[in-house]
Amino acid sequence: MGLLDKEFIDSNIVIAKSEDLLNWARLSSLWQLSFGLACCAIEMMATSASHYDFDRFGVMPRPTPRQADIIIISGTVTLKMATRIKRLYEQMPDPKYIISMGSCSNCGGPYWEHGYHVLKGIDRVIPVDVYVPGCPPRPEALLEGLLKLQEKIRKETLRTKKA
């Protein structure tokens, strides 16, 4: 349940659990590490642009990992890039979330057999929260992935923290 769904009973005071407040704050302002890898990044940019407007969910790109909450792995992850992604992930402050976007970062995609240079799934390097299938996924699919992640964050408690 969302924080603001609670009724305003007396004057302008909302009584809620601190967990709900934290979760609500976190899921409503998922700042994204601005980071794109391949054709999926084009769809991700389309999602950020005015037609789909990622910003209405509080997602906006940050060019530094130190101020980012979420990293969308949008495209083919080469072995050379994987070492860098791991470094970027380690530089992000907790709590941090990952959306794996598209077949390539889910499982290697079309490079699964002969891609000598491709990591067969970003989950071999960093933990993934939501996988978005597609090649590349349409912006609607990425938005759905983000909503799934928001649901996941909403259910977090201090004891079942996942990131």
Binding site: L79, A82, T83, W112, E113, L119, K120, R124, V125
Partner: peptide, 9 residues
């Protein structure tokens, strides 16, 4: 393996 990452599918 490359840097501890498994390469084959």
């Amino acid at each position: 393996f490359y840097h501890g990452m498994r390469v084959p599918y």
